[in-house]
Nucleic acid binder design. Structure first.
Lengths: 188, 188
DNA sequence: TCTGTTTTGTTGTTTATACAACACATCGGA
DNA sequence: TCCGATGTGTTGTATAAACAACAAAACAGA
């Protein structure tokens, strides 16, 4: 798990698995996707799946993490810039991700997926906050990351509740000043 | 080499190598393509190349064989139908292949490539003739295949000599009746 | 010509993947 | 309820791929 990322075989296989999962997510609901489906689509052995991922939720985690990082502007992320573009990118990524998962009405799975999304959001926000303010109280940064992850996830729930009448970008942009510049001003 | 074709790892790796070679053929001349170029593009180890192919000419052979078989209509090939469509497909395939190799003026390589193309054509024609006439004298069928391969390759040389003023299909179609129905009639 | 550089093939060892077999869990229908 | 079928997760072994190191050939330039 340490230097394993450099072995081309590992990179290839993980990409095959992740891409197959994303592909299948567009075709059927999450609850109907089996490990066998994924490995068949990826043309790899089922045992190989378990070499890389604990289970399908572990895969979901890592796919989400990938999706979030890929959609983020590399520069902004490296610098920990929590600006408008960053929030828009992250919000778009999670709404797209949820839409492609097409998990509409399955409570049991939705809870797990929601938790995974919040966890990954929290990880990213914490890393970026840490880069932005390395000397700050870590406990405070962690709590801030937790609140951001719950808040942004909640916004995505609200966006879906509104039947996707406007784009994710339009939906999230107006509120970003409140996040970046505080509730008192709500202005950049 | 016997059942090796069924191992997914082998199929994957060979496809990666072949696709990379085809990709590189479009960018630079054959003589400038090194094994290292191919394996780098394919993201596989150089030693793995030699596990599958003897050298770059062996690869060329197998790529050409693939290209020819893929472009052939599966049905016609299975039945050994040497009809107009078959000849057009094969002729288009080899002209496209040569164009993508972009081997314009390098005599030494051109001879080797020409030999490989003729050999692969001969193999395909012999197989199809054998299916069409299983009871025929094998020596005669072999010689017929040799003549067809030389003839069709010669036609491709002539087509290039004419600076590709017409499409390969237009170029070869008028002469096909002479092949399929003989020189005496030249009519279907 | 000589010399340093690149490319070609090869070999031995380590690591990842394929595959088959297994126990167990889950689930839908008789 | 039971039962067959399907999915999950694990294990042992065979094989392919990665990697590093090597000698020899091909090559470019002084």
């Amino acid at each position: 798990m340490t230097q394993s990322k450099t072995d081309p075989r590992i990179l290839r296989t993980r990409k095959l698995i992740m891409d197959s999962f994303i592909e299948l997510s567009g075709k059927k609901e999450f609850k109907d996707i089996t490990i066998k489906d994924i490995t068949t689509e990826a043309m790899i052995n089922r045992a190989t799946f378990y070499y890389h991922f604990e289970d399908i939720y572990d895969l979901l985690e890592k796919v989400l993490s990938e999706v979030l990082l890929i959609n983020l502007n590399g520069d902004s992320y490296e610098k920990g810039e929590l600006n408008e573009g960053t929030f828009v990118s992250i919000f778009s990524a999670i709404t797209n991700f949820q839409t492609s998962l097409s998990n509409r009405c399955h409570r049991g799975y939705e809870d797990t997926i929601a938790r995974i999304i919040r966890e990954q959001l929290e990880i990213i926000f914490y890393k970026m906050l840490l880069k932005q303010r390395p000397s700050e109280n870590k406990q405070a940064l962690n709590t801030a990351a937790v609140m951001l992850s719950w808040g942004l996830y909640g916004a995505s729930v609200e966006w879906r509740r509104n039947s996707r009448t406007i784009s994710p970008e339009e939906f999230i942009k107006p509120v970003i000043p409140y996040i970046t510049h505080g509730m008192k001003t709500g202005l950049p």
